[in-house]
Design a protein around this nucleic acid. Sequence first.
DNA 1: AGGTACTGTGGGAGCGCTCCCACAAGTGAT
DNA 2: ATCACTTGTGGGAGCGCTCCCACAGTACCT
Lengths: 351, 351
Amino acid sequence: MAIHGARGRSGGRPTLEEVAARAGVGRGTVSRVINGSPRVSDATRAAVEAAVAELGYVPNTAARALAANRTDAIALVVPEPETRFFAEPYFSDMLKGVGAELSDTEMQLLLIFAGSDRERQRLAQYLAAHRVDGVLLVSVHADDPLPDLLAQLEIPAVISGPRSAAETLTSVDSDNYGGARSAVEHLLARGRRTIAHITGRQDVYGAQRRVDGYRAALRDSGHEVDERLIEPGDFTEGGGRRAMAALLDRCPHLDAVFAASDVTAAGARQALRDAGRRIPDDVALVGYDDSAIARHMDPPLTSVRQPIEEMGRAMIDLLLTEIADRRPTVSRDLERRQLVLATELVPRTSS
Amino acid sequence: MAIHGARGRSGGRPTLEEVAARAGVGRGTVSRVINGSPRVSDATRAAVEAAVAELGYVPNTAARALAANRTDAIALVVPEPETRFFAEPYFSDMLKGVGAELSDTEMQLLLIFAGSDRERQRLAQYLAAHRVDGVLLVSVHADDPLPDLLAQLEIPAVISGPRSAAETLTSVDSDNYGGARSAVEHLLARGRRTIAHITGRQDVYGAQRRVDGYRAALRDSGHEVDERLIEPGDFTEGGGRRAMAALLDRCPHLDAVFAASDVTAAGARQALRDAGRRIPDDVALVGYDDSAIARHMDPPLTSVRQPIEEMGRAMIDLLLTEIADRRPTVSRDLERRQLVLATELVPRTSS
DNA sequence: AGGTACTGTGGGAGCGCTCCCACAAGTGAT
DNA sequence: ATCACTTGTGGGAGCGCTCCCACAGTACCT
């Protein structure tokens, strides 16, 4: 942990040159050892490593960045205010995966919030200065200009949750379609016949896919899709409550509800209670996200779990590949990479 | 936001040199304008600024760092695992203050977790490489070697919550002594006469100061300090419960309790309930931190608020000063700076 | 008139690396 | 013995800045 040994004449930190002198080799050779090049004999490598240890040499990042034109840093950009970042476990889980995958790398992770216009401005400057080798983008809205800025600056980037089926950036997503399917299939398997769906905001691609999955599950099991059973929500509790009330009004005979998020389900539950319907006796309820809310709801809520941590890991993998790819060759034929990870239904007593 | 205008021949980003050529001035002059030196005529400044805008020039951070031997970055080091960071509002509040104070600076903030040994190792490397100009240290335990490492590497640092009265690092703290005093004085003013204290972990300096404040408040108002009314706790709920039980056993006539944290108070409340004591009718209860727990307790808990966000701001102020101070002169006579911010009692129904 | 001081400016040197070319020494085929 | 590679190595050039010295120009004193 401690830095030991003698220093260069100036009292500052040792340089490559000093290590080279100590090991009795040239500058280039030390550089090769430091960077793990295979073109060094074992004896030389050992000598250099000894000199590095004796002097407590640590490479100067700035010099390296200047000479090699890379920063060895990537940014996790959160286009939200800090508050939401801390409030939602989504980010914390993702950060855990990202951190884990990065931990055996030399890469440094920067966390950048871009909630306000001011922060956006700063971020743009930051990216223009190419202060990171790549960017991880989470929770981006459909009309966000950030992805385009990144493309224009030719900065490698990976987005979690593509903006549409035609997303141009490399993306990682969970299987919203399959997740929704499994929720509906679960309800069908439990004998439910009239299954309603409260959707998420339809300008979010993932929410659209959940509707698609809902439809497909019904059709594939020979049921007809009744459009009156699909009610728009907005991922909020209030939205869930209102949507549920509307559904009960329109189709009082429904016996199950698939909500596009746990928070939405919480709102729906309230409306169901107000209408005197028991869960799951009268109406079965399934949510999405498998958040803390689901576990603590009364009754505990069946929900679809997304592998957020794994998504974080995958994003790093893809980003590092992308960064590595663009280094030697000029071939820009990087085909679109879109990774979709499986979800998992977590059954609880609400269904 | 967009980068417009022509570039240098190579298609890369424009350099200082190119801006100089375009503005018809020398390299040094452009550098002076960029860095806001006053030694530039207004006309020249305008010409350079125009050239900068036309070319979309953004300084190369690596080159600047190499030449000037600074990084324009500071690290917020959290010697805890990520999990605790997200769980405790303390960090989020502090981050808010830090971010706000930094927002009109060129400084970049890095968030570094050093919970595991592995991460510690990385951090040591990171600091040895002088990749930041300064460090903010939060939530450090008494025996942590990190402060010494920072001192050894001569990296400017500010610590929140000094490790002892003899803290060598510049520190920012809330007034634990005064906070405890105000809590006890509040109880006295409400007519309580037998006031117990459940302490925090005594290897935490702040907890010691709270005991001091408790004692002083009693003495200064002419009361004798009964040592049997002081029971050690450890900031946990279980500790609070056990301590409360012990106190009730030993001094059943007590009519008030000052707990060293809200969580401790929550534990104490439980023990009081179990013993059939009503709050505040039989026993008044005061906590410390003014956390969410305090607001949601039944009954709502009177607590001592610490100005965490302000502490974050103050830490940045001090750190920036420290960084600036060490730049030109070699005079290392920086006297110890210890800032203490006032706390505030938030009265609720528990007392 | 000469001296002194300050202002504004240009550009050389150098920060500590990586990249790459040059080259010595070894290896094996001809 | 010659050529053609391969392997390992040294060190020049250059990345884009900042720092600082030099110097022209102006202003204000003697």
